[in-house]
């Protein structure tokens, strides 16, 4: 099989314009068996990206493949193996959760009844509950149950943890990790919660104002960024160094942020007369903020 078979999805040069927003030349792909976190501020284009991938809106340019199928043309075939949950989805208020389970089971032959019941217990839900009586968090958990019990090859979640309490969030993350024990299943989720993303994702994509600002595997993301504390003796001015994202100067102390960290930087700094007193790793949240700020500064200049 070709390369497409090894990817859960591929977006190439995808664009879509709305009245006040445009998504431009988006390139993104997820290798099979991995989890991708789509991270961005509100209105960045996370939901639009997901809706394009799900064939809910058609792109104006570029190509989209989902589990080896062209989107939007072959969306019906692809969707049999994809489950999508967004927290604004609604179930039928006047039906019980059990009715919904039977309904989804009748549509999807892969439905796993035993797993559905395990999830019921784990999420603290009951099949005889009416949807109308569910809290917001329970509603999200019900949607997740209906999606996961189909045993899809790709799970797509738009802000899955936003309405959940810490215990339910923990349960959900555990379930997501159980899914990728099977290396032919993949997950894409969008989130503002960089801590969840940092913990469970293999691939990370930062999106801001309709542009993909950076995307790579998590380990190389975290490995490239460092914050260095420097001591600069009086009378010494640091020259412009490459790969420095930010330099904050005090009287004698400075903080330098880089996204291409390597030991050679120490040599370059010491040559200029500066002393490196500390090297710190950065959290994904700090990296995200620095990336977005830099991207916005570049767009403006």
């Amino acid at each position: 099989m070709n390369d497409v078979a090894n990817h859960a999805f591929t977006l190439r040069g995808v664009s879509k314009a709305f009245r006040y927003f445009r998504l431009d030349g988006l390139n993104l792909e997820l290798p099979m068996g991995q989890i991708m976190g789509l991270v961005g501020p509100n209105g960045a284009g996370k939901s639009t990206t997901i809706r394009l991938l799900m064939g809910l809106i058609a792109p104006e340019g570029g190509t989209i493949e989902l589990l080896g199928r062209r989107i939007p043309e072959q969306v019906a075939e692809a969707k049999r193996e994809v489950a999508f949950v967004a927290d604004d989805m609604r179930l039928y208020n006047h039906a019980k959760l059990g009715w919904h389970m039977r309904f989804v089971a009748s549509l999807f032959p892969e439905w796993d009844e035993a797993y559905a019941h395990k999830l019921l217990r784990q999420f603290n839900l009951r099949a005889d509950q009416y949807v109308k009586g569910l809290s917001r968090g329970e509603h999200v958990k019900a949607l997740l149950l209906l999606a996961l019990a189909r045993r899809p090859r790709l799970v797509v979640l738009d802000e899955p943890t936003s309405g959940l309490d810490p215990v339910a969030r923990h349960e959900l993350l555990s379930e997501l990790m159980q899914i990728v024990r099977d290396d032919s299943r993949s997950i894409l989720f969008s989130s503002h919660n960089t801590q969840d993303v940092e913990r469970i994702c293999d691939q990370i994509a930062f999106i801001d104002r309709g542009r993909l600002v950076d995307a790579r595997d998590k380990e190389s993301f975290l490995e490239r960024w460092r914050r260095l504390s420097l001591e600069i003796p009086a009378g010494i001015t640091l020259p412009r160094l490459k790969d420095v994202v930010d330099l904050t100067l005090g009287e004698r102390l400075a903080t330098l942020t880089t996204d291409r960290y390597e030991p050679a930087l120490h040599v370059a700094l010491e040559k200029c007369g500066a002393r490196v007193t500390d090297v710190q790793r950065m959290s994904l949240e700090e990296i995200f903020v620095a990336t977005v700020m830099r991207s916005r500064a570049q767009v403006q200049s």
Binding site: Q34, S174, M177, V180
Partner: peptide, 17 residues
């Protein structure tokens, strides 16, 4: 790798490394 990743809820790529 995938077993440990699921057990401790840490990404596969991290355990792989």
């Amino acid at each position: 790798i995938r077993q440990l990743a699921a057990d401790i809820r840490v990404s596969v790529i991290t355990i792989k490394r």
